[in-house]
Amino acid sequence: MAINQSTAPAETGLRGPRGEPVTLDVNGATYAIELEPRVSLLDALRDHLDMTGTKKGCDQGTCGACTVWMDGRRVLSCLTLAYSCEGHQIATIEGIAQDGELHPMQQAFIDHDAFQCGYCTPGQIMSAIALLREGNATTDADIAEHMSGNICRCQAYPNIHAAIREVRDADDGG
């Protein structure tokens, strides 16, 4: 079957496979970069925007180290094409601390020693903050279940749970 692009409505909107300009909105700033369509959001962040806080643990959607927010919801940047992110707001760990002041979740992770090697940590924190926003942290079992997409091979899990509880309870004013 021949490709008949002349009749395809898509004709004018086809992009790639070579690199083309893309506009990404990351942490409130707009970045215009040239990317091929095959580049994931994760690689765009790490290799093209030099935002290496978002980690590559598996590139397969099985570890959660690459967790970022798209329009406020946590997603895996390794399974998201950068092209699909145009027009959406991306938030990464680099945007969490404000004016040099750590987010309470970041401070709680330090205080509770909620990491060792630190490689899963940005993803854990992006998930943990979203978890509280989602309202999925009412019980210890809720926290454990809804954080399970973020693997910590150092097994800092009990300390991560403690950090999340602390921030949750402070948010509640308790």
Partner: peptide, 17 residues
């Protein structure tokens, strides 16, 4: 692999593409 990307604005456009 190199891919071409098209963001469909409508169902018809997606199906046609």
């Amino acid at each position: 692999r190199p891919i071409t990307f098209f963001r469909a604005g409508s169902i018809d456009e997606a199906v046609a593409a």
